[in-house]
Each structure stands twice: as C-alpha cells, then as structure tokens.
Write a protein that binds this DNA or RNA. Sequence first.
DNA 1: CCTTGAAATGAAATCGATACCATTCTTTGT
DNA 2: ACAAAGAATGGTATCGATTTCATTTCAAGG
Lengths: 340, 340
Amino acid sequence: MATISDVSKRAGVSRSTVSRVVSGNGYVSEANRRAIEVAIAELGYRPNTLARALRSNRSNVIGAVVVDIGTPYFANIIFGVQRAIRPAGKSLMVSSGYADQDQEARAIVEMVDRSCDGIVLYLERPMRADVVEIVRQAKIPVVSIGHDHCPLSRGRVALDNFEGARMAMRHLLEQGHRNIVYLSGDPEIGDAKDRLKGVEAALTEIGMSLSDIEVQAGLFHEDFGYEAGRALLRRRRDFTAVFAGADVIAAGLYLALGEAGLRVPDDISVIGFDDAYHAKFMSPPLTTIRQQPDVLGGQAANQLLGLLTGSETGPLQSLVGTSLVVRSSVAMRHLAKEVA
Amino acid sequence: MATISDVSKRAGVSRSTVSRVVSGNGYVSEANRRAIEVAIAELGYRPNTLARALRSNRSNVIGAVVVDIGTPYFANIIFGVQRAIRPAGKSLMVSSGYADQDQEARAIVEMVDRSCDGIVLYLERPMRADVVEIVRQAKIPVVSIGHDHCPLSRGRVALDNFEGARMAMRHLLEQGHRNIVYLSGDPEIGDAKDRLKGVEAALTEIGMSLSDIEVQAGLFHEDFGYEAGRALLRRRRDFTAVFAGADVIAAGLYLALGEAGLRVPDDISVIGFDDAYHAKFMSPPLTTIRQQPDVLGGQAANQLLGLLTGSETGPLQSLVGTSLVVRSSVAMRHLAKEVA
DNA sequence: CCTTGAAATGAAATCGATACCATTCTTTGT
DNA sequence: ACAAAGAATGGTATCGATTTCATTTCAAGG
C-alpha cells in the first residue's frame, strides 16, 4: 500500500503539502496540486484511516447502539442512520444491547473505545453510571432515540406516541365504538406511557374517561395479543373494538379471535400501531398507525452530524409524526350490531 | 484519557512491560504484573484502539456488506454475524450496496480503508474488477454468503436452496397435487436457479418433469405474487396448488386469490419459502420452508474467524439446511376436489 | 565454575498520518 | 522602497500504542 511519503516523493514535495491537498485545508499552488493528484492516481494512494484518526482525533465513524439489530424495527432505524451519514462520508459501527444493562454498557464502551465521533443510542433502560462517566470523559456527543436514558444526550428524537395513539382512538370513536379494549404495551417502556395519555386525550375529547374502557398491559409481543384475547373472551364479549398497542399484538389477537369464531371487523374491530410489514397482509388487512423507524434514525443521525460540525450545539429535540392507515379491520359500530 | 505512558509511570515500569501485560504476550514478573494491573484499575486505563490497530495492523473490526440492511432478512444475517464475532472481541462495521454495483464497490472499499480484519459479503452482482484488486492488495480475507460474487472469497456459506425447494415440492406432491404452478424468484439470482433444480428433482422422483407444471419468474416481491396470481386466474383455474418461491410472493398471491373469491387451502393450496416473520400471521397461516438467515451470518463469521486465527486456511464451504414448517395453507387434493 | 538458555526488562524505532512552527516568496499599500 | 499581510512550503514533533533489539538476571546442566 502506498503511503503519503510515497506520494510526496513521487510528486517532489513534502508530506505536509500532500496532506494539505488530501485533506483540503491550507494553501497549495496549482502546479503542486496537480502534480500531487497525478501521483496519487498513479500510485492508487488512499490515506490510512487509522493513522489519520489517531493523529487528528476524528475517526469519521458513527456508532449506533440499538436494542436488537435483528428486528425489523431496529434494522430500519439503522437503515435510516446509514442513509443520513453516508453523504457526510462517515462509516457506521453497530452493536446491540438486547435490553440487558451489561450488554448495553459493553456496546457503548465499545463505541467509545473505537473512537467513534458520535453515538446514536436506542436504550431501553438507564445507562449505567460508570458508562456515563466514560462517555462524558471521552466528550463524545450522544443523541437518543425514543426515551432518553442517557443524561449526556445532546439530542433526542422521539415518535409522537401521544398523537398516534390519539388518532387511533379517535378513529374507533368516530366509527361509533364506545365499548373498547386497549391492549397496551409494557408500561415500563416510555412509549406505552405516552400512548396511554393519547388514548385518554381522545376519550376526554368526547366526554369519556379512561375508566370507561378496559386497559390491559403486556409485552410488545404476539403472545400477549393471543393470551390477552383469549382471557378477555372468556370473561366478556360485549366490547366491539380493540386498540392493539402494536401490530404484533394485533396479530396475536387475530389468532385468538379466529379460534373463538369471531370475525374482524364484522364482530370486532381492531386497530394496530406501527404499520409493520405484515400489517397489510393480515386478513383482513390491518388498519393501523404508521410510524417510520428509518425517519427516526435519519433525524437522529442528522442531529449528530449537526453537533459534530458545530452548526448545532444542542440540546436538540424532535418529534416524528405518525399517520393513520385505513385498511379493513375497523367497521362502523352500527354495522357490527346489524351483523350480530 | 490515561495512556500507556501514564500507566507505566505509575507502576514504575517501562511502556513495553505494560504493553506486555495488556496484550498478554511476553514475560512479565508476577510482582510487576500486579503493580501494573493496580495502576490500570486506578487510572481507568483502556488502550487506544486506533493506535494499537495502526501499529499492529489488526483492528479487530469485521466488516459486513449486505444488499440492504433495512430488510428483515439481511438484518438477521447481520445479527448472526454480530453474535458470532462478539465472543472474539471483534466489533462490527456494516454497509449496504442496495444491489447497485457502484454502491457495493464503495461499501467494500470503505471496509478495506477502515482496516477491517475481514469482510463478510452478501452481493447480488459480480464485484467490480478494480475493487477486487484493492481487496487483493490489502490481503483481507473475504467470505461470501449466498452466491459467491467475489473471486477472492476464502469461504462461502449458502442456503441449501435445492433441498429446500425439493422439500416444498414433495410436500405438494405428497398431498396429491399434480396441477401445480411455481412462482419462481428472479432467475438472475443464483438462489432461484438452485430452487428450480430442486423443484425438478422432486418432480422427477415421481416420474414427472418440469414441463408438467407451470413456472413463472419474477422478483422476490409481493407485487409479483399479486400480479402473477391475477394474470394466472384470468387464464386458467384448473391448478390446485402454488409453490411461491418466497413468502412475500405468497403474501401477494393471497391477496389476488382473495379478490377472486378463492379460499386457501380449500380451493388452492399454497406453500411458501423463507418462513418470514409474517408467515404465521397470514390467514390461513402459511406452510413454508424455513430458513434462518442468522445461521448464515453466524457461519460466515465463524469461517472468517477461523481464517483470521489461522486455524483454517480455506477455501471453506458450508451449506445451511432448511426445514418444512407445516401450517394450514396446504390441503390434500381430494379434499379440495370435494369442496369444489 | 563456566556455559547456556530462559526470564525479565527497557530503549528506541515504527505504524502513517496531521499539527504546529518556522521560513521563504509574493503581493499590496503607502 | 519598505513594511505588512498573505500564499506556499518544509521540517519536526506528535498521536498512543507495538515491535524489535539489546541487555541484564538467574537457574540449571556439564
């Protein structure tokens, strides 16, 4: 591999001058610049990133730590990050914490030790104090996606869970439903809390309150939808609609409903949240609240980029909107009555 | 940040000795070792990865280039890679090529320039010659997943597409189906070719041939399933089963079948390939051939690790198996007849 | 008692770049 | 004609580690 010295010899200039044309700072005469460019091309020179990073203290690597890289949701976040940083010439290093504090700690320290310029974080539990200290000392800017579990975050991007949930609930209400069940996600997770407030807001708007509906909490997982659905049906059958806090929950619920011989939306209306890939292939296709994880990732990356160039100083904050996707899993309530 | 010099001063030894205990090679007296460990703990010293990599020419970073990191399939591959390399203390850098030769080229060169120790590659088209040259010069070991598009690969792991497709086809045949349509994936992609051979093999086993069924080629995308399904139904209705070359194709097909008022599996049996996340939530749940992308990624990473430690010299080769997941989308043929 | 080799250590070179400083050469304004 | 500012360049220190080499110490074997 050709080094900067090889180039400087070939072009008959000092290494300093070569460095100036490669990095683009400082004065270089037109003649020398051309000679150096020729030498670079002839030798196929590409600067050694490690040496450059070591000396200049900038690696041009962005770190991303998410809960689970194998999941479509987080993969999309990563995709958004990647797309945003590529034009800036940054590379991406990824790691997962798997909702485990120790693994998360290791993943973050890994990013610090690899001299990442900045870190995008999606954590599900508070950052360990020793890790906070390490990040602070390293003076590496951090932006969080979702709930901010890092006291050092200089930016944050979150989904507008409140508005999304309100939209979902309003939709059910507008279709005439009053006897509703809300299958909430894990209340430990910030998202679920905000969504519950959104549900309440929609209810309040038409003079109802949270106590007028049934709320059940569980994990963002299909099993919760299935089990909750079964338990519910054993107990009562008078509800006409379910708001599932996540599309995976809705998927499990569909199963339970199907086993009980109930049809969506004729007997029970269902609305989901996420617009996951499978939503439109469920039968009937699921009406749901769309969120775009790649936008979350992209905005977080852009915040970080702004922090790095110094064009922003933070703390930054942005809320990403959702939209209602109407498919065929919600029916008007009077229609449901007629069928029954 | 504490450096190795700080540690050496504090422990009253030379930097060389500290380096020996940190890296674990060379002789160090028990007394010094302990003193150094104490100093390291007190200072909170963590070696500078960049400096270490620059000098030793090993970065402990593995690069992974896949077609599209945002896709569940590739995200799972990445997950598998990550899981396999973590115990070895390696970090992961990822990039996507998006089936574009130039972007793939850039992604690979990025990995080389970042001094990755090795690269896991999932390419969909041949590697550009200049990139091959760059990788060759850098002497970085490469292993490929799927079709091997890199002449330098020292390892390869592929899915047993042949056996998987044969299994799928056999299943339809065993259920009595003879009038079958195969919705193949893009024949440009190696996977599809192998699957077609598997289909043929299953047919041959019972004395039929490829010409006895209808084969249509398209993209691995739901739209293909939908469009192909509609076109097919306009033309003929005598087939009793469809083998969809991918679960996404099956999903699109379900839509077309539903619109035509046909029911799965009573009117038409459908079998898929992949066992994608949504397969079990389709209605009826899709019978399909399961493949585990994370296993592909994991095996590729392990090959790479073996190559790096020198315990393997390559070229390595491994074939990952599939399994039949029976759900409810395939019925016995006589049963279908009765309903009709 | 001397030789030999292993154990233990430190000094200095090195990896490949950038940063900083000093120097020289042009301009430009007065 | 001279000072001052800007343009252009090179030399050297430096980033923080590992590697190589030379040296010293010590125990075992003949």
